[in-house]
Amino acid sequence: MTEPERVEVWEEPGGSWCWRYVAELEEGESVELVGNRAEESEADALAAARRAYPHLRPHRTGERTVDEGHAQSSPTGRRRAGAVVVALVAVLVAVGRPRWWTALPAAAAVQFAVHRIRRTS
């Protein structure tokens, strides 16, 4: 049976620790308030949760519910994809209109995309 109010602490895949306050309402709905910052350790997350809700005892859970969208499309991944798209467009333009002013940007864009992929992989 779930408690009407509880505080949960869990570990994120990156190693940081997060916590959230959950309150179950009568209509089957729930209110979820997430700690504003990720903590470096479990002890820090527990301390932050206790400070915010001194009347509740934090529970550790394995569930990961915060920032799920983050992993699906991280800023790093988006940047890499953006660099590849720009390089592809520049190469296509250079092939279509082979001039020095299309070839040079295309070469630069390809170099930048390779650099970005190497750096982030």
């Binding site: 309150a23 209110v31 308030l33 504003n36 400070r51 915010a52 809700y53 001194p54 009347h55």
Partner: peptide
Amino acid sequence: GLGRTETNVVGPR
């Protein structure tokens, strides 16, 4: 309100 105490501050960023 729900989840608001004297020791926290609840709101959007």
